[in-house]
Every structure is written in C-alpha cells, then in structure tokens.
C-alpha cells in the first residue's frame, strides 16, 4: 500500500516533467506545469523525510522560479516557434532505453533506502546525531549543522546569492536616470 502510493507519486513526477517538455507547445502552460512538477518533487522530499528541502523546493521551485519564468516570458514570444520538430534520431530512440536499463541494473547495487549500515549513515551522521546537542545546545540537528558546524558554508552561500543579485542588476538594468 505504502509503496504503491510512492510509485504513483514518482510516476506523476515523471509524467509532469515529460508533458512540460514534449507535449505542451505553449510556453506559458509549460511554466505552470513545471511549477506543479516542483510541488510533486517537494512531496517526494517530504516522503524521504527531508522536510527542510521540501519546504525550500515548494517555495523556490513552485513560487519564485515560476514568477521569474513568467516575467521573462512577457518579454519573449509566447509560443514555441519550432512547431514542426524533426523526428528524433534512431540512435537516440534505441540508445536511451538501453541506457535506462543499464542505470536500473546499476541501481541494484545501491544501498537500500533507510539501511542503517549504508556508508552515508555510518560515516559522519552518527557524530552529528550524538554530539550536536552537547556541542551546540540546539535541539534541531539540521539547524546546528547548517548554522553552527558549517556556518562558513552558509556564509559563502549568502555571498553567492548577494553576488547573483548584483550581477543581475548590472546586466539587466539600463544605466542612467
């Protein structure tokens, strides 16, 4: 029961992504389908237990990115001008399913989800889980990792965002006034 719901969710994710790229010709609809794709993806993150990531995905992917796409679309043509697309090459039609099968075969060797003996779960996570309250006196492990153990990381990310804003202003705004 649990697994069937999850598989339906993942199928929905793939279908929305495919329809946004292949089926829909109008760019405006494409943008909205991409927004719904982000919502489904945030459901997947929540299912995996990453509530923080789900939060960010819903807010950024479905909210802010959709707005940015829409505002950009108002300055461009609303329709895809390549309405008559050439048929895909034979090598791609044959090769991509083969590649997919190869990836599925390789995925068998990945550790099971939630396996306590998998390498990510025995390397550094136990140290954070056991020592973070004694070290940082913060009950939330995610916060203590993000803002205390790796505060430098967060600081540099903030610098990156700041630089992106400055670069956008320099490139897009017209001088004068």
């Amino acid at each position: 029961m649990m697994y069937s719901v999850n598989i339906a969710l993942l199928l929905l994710l793939v279908l929305t992504a495919a329809s946004a790229t292949f089926l829909v010709k109008e760019l405006m609809s494409s943008v909205f389908i991409l927004g719904s794709y982000s919502f489904f993806l945030s459901l997947v993150w929540a299912w995996l237990g990453a509530v923080d990531v789900a939060f960010v995905e819903a807010v950024i992917g479905a909210g802010l990115a959709t707005v940015l796409f829409l505002i950009t679309l108002f300055d461009t043509a609303p329709k895809d001008s390549r309405l008559r697309r050439p048929p895909p090459p034979l090598a791609g039609v044959l090769g991509l399913p083969l590649l997919g099968i190869l990836l599925l075969l390789a995925a068998n060797d990945l550790p099971q989800f939630g396996d306590p003996t998998s390498p990510p779960n025995v390397h550094i996570s136990p140290m954070y889980l056991q020592n973070s309250f004694a070290d940082t006196l913060t009950p939330n492990v995610v916060t203590s990792v993000l803002m205390d153990y790796r505060a430098f990381d967060t600081l540099i990310e903030t610098v990156v965002i700041f630089t992106a804003g400055i670069a956008c202003a320099l490139l897009l705004r017209e001088p004068g006034s």
Binding site: L64, V67, L68, I71, T72, F74, D75, I161, F162, A164, G165, C168, A169, L171, L172, R173
Partner: peptide
C-alpha cells in the same frame, strides 16, 4: 536579492 532580480527583469 530576490526582489532586485525580479525588478531588473520586469
């Protein structure tokens, strides 16, 4: 930064 990018685009 977000408001600045959207204003520059719009």
């Amino acid at each position: 930064t977000g408001i600045s990018i959207v204003l520059s685009l719009a």
